[in-house]
């Protein structure tokens, strides 16, 4: 047994997680990027992306997923999403007003590259929601676990 198997759930869960977690992440990206032409969008896609990290965390224990995404990194990504959203809104001031859709005439309706700034705003929202939810999860679960271990 390697050191990796000491934490988290059983080997079956770990193997299945290893096979599926990438697909879940890709599905979240798909939902975000196609938010303006199919059902979905930044909210649902962001939560799916956060759930793929939560899946990793639950299966392998806190130490392995902490290597992928620490708490500081989570805060950074969330702030990045907020700044991106506000920057897109402020860029509209140059063209007509706050949240003006200044890229709008590019692309045919129904294409992937269309609808102006809406896909970009979807990406910003997904970063914000996903990183925020994963940050809440890390705080509630992982820190709590460390505290209970310390008490014992």
């Amino acid at each position: 047994m390697s050191k990796e198997h000491e934490h988290g759930m059983s080997v079956i869960v770990k193997t299945v997680t290893r096979l599926t977690v990438g697909l879940i992440f890709l599905y979240g990206m798909y939902i975000v990027l196609h938010g303006h032409i199919t059902p979905g969008g930044g909210f649902a896609g962001g939560v799916i992306i956060a759930l793929s990290f939560i899946n990793l965390d639950l299966a392998f224990g806190g130490k392995v997923s902490g290597k992928v995404f620490s708490k500081g990194g989570t805060s950074l990504v969330e702030a990045l999403g907020a700044v991106m959203f506000l920057a897109l809104a402020l860029m509209g001031l140059q063209y007509g007003g706050f949240f003006d859709n200044f890229l709008h005439p590019d692309g045919e309706p129904g294409d992937l590259v269309s609808a102006g700034i809406i896909p970009l705003e979807n990406i910003a929202i997904s970063l914000k929601v996903g990183a925020g939810l994963f940050g809440i999860f890390l705080t509630l679960i992982v820190l709590q676990k460390f505290e209970s271990e310390k008490k014992q």
């Binding site: 909210f43 939560v47 929601v129 939810l133 809440i136 509630l140």
Partner: peptide
Amino acid sequence: VLTSIVIGLATTAFMIALAI
């Protein structure tokens, strides 16, 4: 409702933190 659902999740998490 789309925005309200996500806000509901955030407030639920906050209530859980207070309960813990």
